[in-house]
Every structure is written in structure tokens, then in C-alpha cells.
Design a protein around this nucleic acid. Structure first.
Length: 702
RNA sequence: GCCCCCGUAGCUCAGCAGGAUAGAGCAACCGCCUUCUAAGCGGUUGGCCGUGGGUUCGAGUCCCGCCGGGGGCACCA
């Protein structure tokens, strides 16, 4: 089959062999190039425009029957775009070098190429291909910058805040992130979660998706109950200026440690009983018994009682206070949400029961009468266990209590709108960005059910298997296409040099402290430098922006899957690959633009500048990096590897620094000066846009 | 024991769907402010991409084994 195909290809190529060598430029080959015009609606994607030309050229060369992938060569001497023809050559039974040469040879620069500075006529002509060159199996394409740079600048200006938006349909996405137990202050791992989730959200929105950000509040869990119980029974004075979530967290840690002590005490007690020399009225033993009794008969039942009270709707005042206090942390980082979904609402709306009723209808669910799952409600996920039983996931235990996975399946059926929505929605609070944060509710307005096309859960990697179980459960229940919509972004844990952080032991670095540390360090540096005349308020504002950007940048500069070894010194470092580096490049751009205005150069003059004058190497590099943005956004919206956004911003800032060194702007000759100002403005706009996508505040001076 | 993620420069990490000579930042050393903010720029040093096989014209990238780190493996959440 494959042979037959390649045979036909070879024959077809023979007919076209007129363009076989680099020196053969038969007119027929050229006249065969009836260029199909590209879409006339602006795509604001200059690189795609270049690619269109290349693809059209390749098509019309008659030598390429497949869609070849366009690459960005690593080395500048290989041009701006390249295709490699090894695979194609192999299928055609040809020598790769020869094929590449043949393709390159079919290009004639004078035929389609517009003369320099010819403007924008003839979209689809060879406006942007300067040359085509064959090198060892690669066909390299060089950009014609004099026509390309003006096109880049116009496109970015035209696109404005939508630069990077993809063509085509919008999809609806639910992103769930944060989902921190409402029982103590955020730690650094929560900050990573929130920044990742928020950045993913920003990228998807830029990309054109309609995103709803949900923050799941597990108020009925043991953690929340423990904190509430501690607060009600063992309150301590609040410290001066202590944030409420920190205060409650302090009580939580204290009581958790008593629970943790239970095991240790049990062991101690057992070994003492084995010791013949101790009698039953040994005071040491009695002390241990008393403590154990306290834990087992007071603390544990007390916590469980509070848990049920919360489920029934009590103590919401305390939980709300903790939550509102916690939310100050993401708000400071410019992380916002659309909806809080409360576990207690899901429980009290009987969502779980309706979901299980639906699962009951699946032929793969069942109530085993014997075996290891006797008495439970399970869903068979396929395959058999080592004991020969069918593999199953327990959704409801034999004692009638739902499992975590069971609850999560129900929850995701709600997210995916697989059953009628029993919940109502009310406004919860107004966030610092002015947007209303909504909350689920048992009373109030309903909302129209709109099923998402994609559900992204930002949850740490240790939940991977549970997330997979939810997916399999949904599939087994017959929701196969819906289950495919679930995507778990499993990010790595944040650990310190000492080891894994633990909320329960209170060894975690608090998010608030990390942010404040970064802000304080920034303020200190600003005071030291005094490079501008800044008053106290300005310095504080700038320090806040620098600190927040430092934290956010730190959290997104790594591949999400990777574990982060967190060293506070790294967040506070302002050299090299950091948020401040990007901000600093912007400060320089703002300074240039400000001084230009002060020198009386009107915006209109800059608008009218001739961008084709920008032919310095650094100017070309800036332009070429600018046009990689749409592709970067599109890759990230697919892979959720948000580190690429940070990398793009860092690289643009780096190239700008080189431009700054090599190309004077204000002292350039009139004409070129305006052109450079136009470029600086464009780079500024693009970089501000990238900072917005990263949620990083921008500063204009430092 | 089984499953998942990760092993790339002294340290922290990129490397997006296999492509050309593997890149940053930090640290170290040497240089650059009479010129748009030096929190910047240039240079030097630094790599058997954990390891052994395999697939491929081509492997840091895909497959298998092993070693090391982390996580998960219950009718726990």
C-alpha cells in the first residue's frame, strides 16, 4: 500500500521534474503558481502570514505532497523558518539533499517578490520570503524584513489586547484551582496552585476561550471541622494584627498535634504495660491514659460532631470569616475567581444521591453480594484484580458512607452538567478588580445549564490516581465523551530544603509571609538605590508591584509537573531570570517614551514613522520574537505549560536589552528616531500584554 | 510488590509534536556607566542530557530494562 502510494508520488513528481535543479527555472513552474489568496480577514498573526507564503510556495513547487511542519531554526544563519525533508525524501526514495535543493531551486525571488518598501499590496505574493536555501536536508527560509517589520508593527497595533487570540471557535472551559481547605492560612504550595490556575485562565481567555474559574470550598471536611472545634472550645487571644486565617490556623496546628500524638501515646502505653515493674496506678501511665482519653473521648467525637453540624449548615459564620481572610492572599496576587462551590451545598442539595441514581442505571455499576466489595455500591472499571475479581471502584461503602471518589464523581457530574443543577447562585463579594465573586447557594437564582467543553483541575500530583479514578468511573457509568473533557493539571509539590511542607505540622511557609518578604526586600532595594525622585507612596506602590511580580514569576517559570525546591532567597532575588528583569525592561521602554514626549516628539509623528527603516540586527530580532507570541499562546493553551509564557517575556526583555545597548533611540537621526520609537512602543505594548497574561503588575519607573 | 511523575553545567531550571553545533539564570573570574535608569550589557570557566539496550536517515525527546529522588497504591479525605 505504502509502496503504491509512493510510486504514484514519484510518477507525479517526474512530470514536474522541470524544477529539479537549482539552476532550472522553467517558466511553467512559475506560472503554475496560482496563489490562493489567504483569508482577507486580519489574523494578526504575522508569522502565520509568513508561513502561509511558505506553504503556498511548497505546494506550488509541486515537489511536496504532504504538509510539512515548519520549524524555527536554532541558528540564525539558517533563516527564520525551515522545513526538513528527510521523511519526505525517504518516502519518495530520493536523496534528502537533492530534494531540498530541488525545492529551494524552484523559488525565484524576482517573480513574486515585491520590491523593497512596496507596501502591502498583493497579500499572498512573496512579500515576506527573501530567499530559500537548501542545506543538508533542510530548506531554509529567510524573512524579508523591510516588508515584514512594518507588517508586524501594524498587526500588533491592530490586534491590541487580542494579540495572540486564535482563529476559530470559542470553547467553554471550567478551571478549578486553589480549593484550599477553609481552616488555616495559605502556604506556599497553595500559592503555586493559584498562580498556575490563574495564569492558565488568563492564557485561555486570551486565546479566546470562555473560562469560568471555580474555587471548591471543602467546608465539610475534617480539617475545617477541626479548626472550628478548636476555635469554639480552646480559643486563645489573637495576636496583635494577626490575620484571622493565621489565628485559626494556629489553633488548628495545636489541636492537630494532639491527634498526631495519639499513636505515639498508644505505643508508649503498650510498652509500659509490658513492663512488669510498673503497676496500674503508675502515675506516668495514668497521665498517658488521661491524655488518650481526652483525645479519644473529647477531641475526636467533638470534631466529628462539629463536622456534622457544618454539614447541617451551622458555623458558616466562622468558615466565612476564615475564607474571606484567606482570599486576601490570592487577591493580593491578582488572582480572582468566578464561583465558590461549597461542598456543604453539594451535600445538602442531595446532588450525591441523584448522581448515584444515575450511575445506578449503568450496567457497569452494582452491589456485590459477596467478595471483598460485599455490601458496597461499586462501579466496575474493567479488568480483574490479582484475586480474580472484577476491578471496581467503591462509590458508597457498605456502611452507607460515600467514598471520596464517589463524591468526586458526583461533583464532576455536576461540573459537566450531566444532571439537573439543584443549586442556586448568589453574589458573595466584590473582588478588588471589581468583579463579583459568586457562590453556590441553596436558595436564590438559578442559572441556565451550560455544559463546558473542557474541565481543567489544578490539583497537586499526589491526587493523580484519584483524578484518574474519577475519569474511569465516569467512563464506566457511560459518560465516555464527557469524561474525555476532564483534564488534570498535576503540578509538583513545593518543598523546602528541609523537606516536604506540611500544613498540619505547621511547617509550611505561609503564602502571606513569602509575599510580604518579597515586597519588603523590594522596598529595601528601592530605598538603597534612590535612582529616581520617588516619594514614600510611590516607593511602596512600586515595591508591592515588584514583590507580587516576583512571586508570580517564580511560580510560573518552572514546568508545572516539576517539583519546586523553594528557597525564599530565590523569590527575593532580583537578578537575572526573574519578574523584575521583565519589569525593568519595561521601565526602560517607558523612560524612552516619556523622554521622547518631553522632547516634543508627537505621537502622530511616531504613528507615521517608516518602520521599514528598522533593519538593525537587534531590531529584526525584536520583530521576529514578537511574532512568536501567537504560537506560544496556542501551545500553552493546549499543553498548559505556562512556563513558556514567562520564557517568551524573558526572552523579549533580553533582546530588548541588547537593542537598548546597540541602538540609541532618542539620539538617532530624525526619521530613524521615530521609527525606533514606534518599535519601542510596540515592544512595550506586547510585553505589557504578556505581563497581563502572567498576572504581573507593570511598573513605569523604578 | 504494583502504578504515576522527575533525573540535563557546581546550584536552580528551559528544551513546546524526534531534526542542524543541547540553552538560560545563579554562583566564580575578567571587563563596560561624560551617552535613553548598570536591578543592565559583554566575555571566560563549566555537559558521556542517571545508566544499559532498542526503534529511526536522525534520540535529551519515543519504547524496554536497571539505578536514584518524590508521590500514590485501603470500603481514608
Amino acid at each position: 500500500m505504502a509502496l503504491v502510494q509512493s510510486f504514484h508520488r514519484v510518477r507525479a513528481l517526474r512530470h514536474r521534474s522541470v524544477s529539479d535543479g537549482p539552476d532550472v527555472r522553467e517558466p511553467s513552474a512559475g506560472s503554475a503558481r496560482q496563489r490562493r489568496p489567504v483569508e482577507s480577514s486580519p489574523t494578526y498573526d504575522p508569522l502565520a502570514d509568513f508561513d502561509q507564503e511558505i506553504l503556498a510556495f511548497l505546494r506550488d513547487s509541486g515537489l511536496v505532497s504532504d504538509d510539512l511542519k515548519l520549524e524555527v531554526p536554532k541558528r540564525p544563519e539558517h533563516g527564520e523558518r525551515a522545513v526538513n525533508v528527510f521523511a519526505l525524501a525517504k518516502r519518495q526514495g530520493r536523496n534528502p539533499n537533492e530534494l531540498a535543493s530541488a525545492i529551494a531551486g524552484s523559488f525565484s525571488a524576482d517573480e513574486g517578490g515585491a520590491p523593497k518598501g512596496a507596501g502591502l499590496q498583493g497579500v499572498g505574493q512573496d512579500r515576506f520570503i527573501e530567499s530559500v536555501e537548501a542545506v543538508t536536508g533542510f530548506v531554509n527560509f529567510r524573512l524579508r524584513y523591510p516588508t515584514f517589520i512594518p507588517h508586524v508593527i501594524e498587526s500588533i497595533r491592530g490586534a491590541g489586547n487580542t494579540y495572540g487570540r486564535r482563529q476559530g471557535t470559542r470553547s467553554r472551559v471550567v478551571v478549578e484551582h486553589s480549593s484550599v481547605n477553609p481552616n488555616k492560612e495559605w502556604h506556599i504550595g497553595h500559592v503555586r496552585n493559584a498562580v498556575l490556575g490563574d495564569t492558565v485562565t488568563r492564557v485561555l481567555r486570551l486565546s479566546g476561550d470562555e473560562v469560568e474559574v471555580q474555587n471548591y470550598i471543602d467546608d465539610t471536611g475534617l480539617q475545617a471541622a477541626t479548626s472550628v472545634y478548636a476555635l469554639l472550645n480552646f480559643p486563645e487571644p489573637e495576636k496583635e494584627g494577626e490575620k484571622y486565617d493565621h489565628y485559626v490556623g494556629r489553633l488548628y496546628v495545636k489541636i492537630s498535634q494532639e491527634f498526631a500524638e495519639e499513636d505515639r501515646l498508644q505505643e508508649q502505653r503498650a510498652s509500659m504495660l509490658l513492663d512488669d515493674e510498673r503497676s496500674d496506678d503508675d502515675p506516668e501511665l495514668q497521665r498517658i491514659d488521661a491524655r488518650l482519653q481526652n483525645i479519644q473521648q473529647r477531641l475526636q467525637p467533638g470534631t466529628v460532631r462539629v463536622m456534622h453540624e457544618i454539614e447541617a449548615g451551622q458555623h458558616s459564620d466562622i468558615i466565612n470569616m476564615v475564607l474571606k481572610s484567606q482570599l486576601q492572599t490570592p487577591f493580593r496576587l491578582r488572582v480572582y475567581y468566578d464561583l465558590l462551590n461549597w461542598e456543604s451545598h453539594l451535600v445538602r442539595s442531595h446532588l450525591f444521591k441523584s448522581a448515584m441514581d444515575l450511575v445506578e442505571k449503568s450496567p457497569h455499576s452494582g452491589h456485590p453480594k459477596d467478595g471483598r466489595y460485599e455490601g458496597a455500591f461499586v462501579i466496575y472499571t474493567g479488568g480483574t484484580t490479582s484475586e480474580g475479581e472484577e476491578k471496581a471502584e467503591v462509590l458508597v461503602r457498605s456502611n452507607g458512607i460515600p467514598t471520596y471518589v464517589g463524591k468526586d464523581i458526583a461533583y464532576h457530574m455536576w461540573k459537566l452538567h450531566l444532571l439537573p443543577d439543584p443549586l442556586s447562585y448568589v453574589a458573595y463579594l466584590e473582588q478588588p478588580n471589581g468583579a463579583i465573586l459568586w457562590s453556590t447557594s441553596l436558595h436564590g437564582e438559578k442559572r441556565p445549564p451550560v455544559a463546558p467543553d473542557r474541565v481543567i483541575n489544578i490539583i497537586a500530583v499526589h491526587q493523580s490516581q484519584a483524578q484518574e479514578a474519577v475519569k474511569q468511573g465516569l467512563q464506566a457509568a457511560g459518560f465516555e465523551t464527557e469524561a474525555e473533557k476532564l483534564f488534570h493539571l498535576a503540578y509538583g509539590m513545593v518543598r523546602t530544603k528541609e523537606g516536604l511542607i506540611s500544613g498540619r505540622k505547621g511547617t509550611a511557609a505561609a503564602g502571606d509571609d513569602v509575599i510580604q518578604g518579597a515586597v519588603d526586600a523590594a522596598l529595601e532595594r528601592i530605598r538603597e538605590k534612590q535612582s529616581q525622585d520617588l516619594d514614600e507612596d510611590e516607593m511602596k506602590q512600586i515595591a508591592e508591584a515588584v514583590g507580587v511580580a516576583a512571586v508570580r514569576y517564580f511560580m510560573v517559570q518552572y514546568n508545572p509537573l516539576r517539583e519546586i525546591v523553594f528557597d525564599p532567597a530565590d523569590v527575593v532575588s532580583f537578578d537575572g531570570n526573574t519578574g523584575l528583569y521583565v519589569q525593568y525592561a519595561l521601565v526602560r521602554m517607558y523612560a524612552i517614551l516619556r523622554k521622547a514626549a518631553e522632547a516634543g516628539i508627537a505621537d502622530a509623528e511616531v504613528d507615521a514613522a517608516d518602520a521599514s527603516l528598522l533593519q538593525h540586527e537587534q531590531e529584526r530580532r525584536l520583530a521576529f520574537h514578537l511574532v512568536k507570541w501567537p504560537e506560544t499562546v496556542s501551545t500553552v493553551s493546549r499543553t498548559l505549560g505556562v512556563n513558556l509564557i514567562a520564557e517568551w517575556a524573558f526572552d523579549l526583555a533580553t533582546i530588548f536589552s541588547e537593542f537598548y545597548r546597540d541602538c540609541g533611540v532618542l539620539n538617532a537621526e530624525p526619521g530613524l528616531r521615530e521609527s525606533r520609537l514606534l518599535l519601542v512602543r510596540t515592544v512595550r505594548d506586547a510585553l505589557v500584554h504578556a505581563c497581563d497574561t502572567l498576572g504581573m503588575p507593570v511598573i513605569e519607573r523604578l
